[in-house]
Simulated scan of single mutants.
Amino acid sequence: MRGEEPSVEEAVAVAMASLHNPEEEVAWDDVKDFKDAEAIVIKLTTKYCNEFAPTRHYVAIETRCAALDIRTDYGVVRTTGTIDRVRELPDLRRGVTDLKSGKQATEKNDDGTRRAAIGAHHLQVGIYTLMAEVALNEQLEAPAEIVGLSTTKEAPIAAADIPDVKTALLGKEGYVGMIEMAAKTLKDGLFRPNPGAFTCTKTWCAGYPRCPYHA
């Protein structure tokens, strides 16, 4: 951002420090898994710095946004957070870029090339886009972008554009936006069970033993 060439070695050192001193509790199956993770962190961070990052022009990185209040028929929904990145394209359009890591962060196209796995990330980058527009005081006209950093041994990195990330959230004629739906859910206090969630386990959910909705 300052126009200086970053040190890849320092980036790797920071990534390794996060691996060795995680902010959340991590349960490793064995020493081998940890050693494998170290190798992947080094390879993936180095590849991102040397091969991917130079292909992007970022105008904002880790930008903390002020709270954004969105008024709905069911009250005000307040969003807060940090925008991962805002990129600028050669035609000067700007859009949000969000980095996602994990074993399933990328997937293969029919021709064997890779793309980032989008999943439900379009809703997240949609919120980021709304907040970034307020923070930067401009409309972001470029597609949002997901960058997948796969934590497999091959450590592939791939991107995927999402052309429209705001309509699903804000709605349009004949369709209610998901922010409106969320506001109604919060007001009514009715939350759907989600057996597909990562936290739907004995480890993370205190109500798991008596819940009839999981398999």
Rank of each mutant, 00 (worst) to 15 (best):
residue 1 M to T: 02
residue 1 M to V: 11
residue 1 M to Y: 09
residue 3 G to D: 06
residue 3 G to H: 04
residue 5 E to Q: 13
residue 6 P to M: 08
residue 8 V to K: 03
residue 8 V to P: 05
residue 10 E to Y: 10
residue 10 E to K: 15
residue 13 A to C: 06
residue 14 V to C: 02
residue 18 S to K: 14
residue 19 L to S: 04
residue 19 L to T: 07
residue 28 W to Q: 01
residue 30 D to C: 12
residue 30 D to K: 02
residue 32 K to E: 15
residue 34 F to L: 15
residue 35 K to L: 15
residue 36 D to G: 06
residue 37 A to C: 08
residue 38 E to S: 08
residue 40 I to D: 01
residue 45 T to L: 06
residue 46 T to D: 06
residue 46 T to A: 01
residue 47 K to Q: 07
residue 48 Y to W: 13
residue 54 P to G: 09
residue 57 H to F: 11
residue 64 R to E: 14
residue 66 A to E: 15
residue 66 A to I: 01
residue 68 L to C: 07
residue 68 L to F: 04
residue 69 D to I: 02
residue 75 G to D: 07
residue 76 V to A: 00
residue 81 G to E: 02
residue 83 I to H: 02
residue 84 D to L: 01
residue 87 R to S: 07
residue 88 E to V: 11
residue 89 L to E: 13
residue 89 L to W: 09
residue 94 R to D: 04
residue 95 G to E: 06
residue 95 G to D: 08
residue 97 T to A: 12
residue 99 L to K: 01
residue 102 G to H: 02
residue 104 Q to A: 13
residue 105 A to P: 00
residue 105 A to G: 08
residue 108 K to F: 12
residue 109 N to E: 12
residue 110 D to G: 05
residue 112 G to Y: 07
residue 115 R to Q: 14
residue 115 R to K: 15
residue 118 I to F: 07
residue 121 H to R: 14
residue 123 L to N: 11
residue 123 L to D: 08
residue 131 M to A: 06
residue 131 M to N: 01
residue 134 V to D: 13
residue 136 L to T: 05
residue 138 E to I: 07
residue 139 Q to G: 01
residue 140 L to T: 04
residue 143 P to A: 11
residue 144 A to R: 10
residue 148 G to W: 10
residue 149 L to C: 15
residue 150 S to Q: 15
residue 154 E to P: 00
residue 155 A to K: 00
residue 163 P to C: 12
residue 164 D to Y: 10
residue 165 V to G: 09
residue 165 V to E: 05
residue 166 K to W: 03
residue 167 T to A: 11
residue 167 T to L: 06
residue 167 T to P: 05
residue 168 A to P: 03
residue 176 V to E: 14
residue 176 V to K: 11
residue 178 M to N: 15
residue 181 M to D: 06
residue 185 T to W: 03
residue 190 L to N: 10
residue 195 P to Y: 09
residue 196 G to L: 13
residue 200 C to P: 00
residue 203 T to E: 13
residue 204 W to I: 00
residue 207 G to K: 14
residue 208 Y to W: 13
residue 209 P to Y: 03
residue 210 R to N: 09
residue 214 H to N: 09
residue 214 H to M: 10
residue 215 A to V: 14
residue 215 A to I: 14
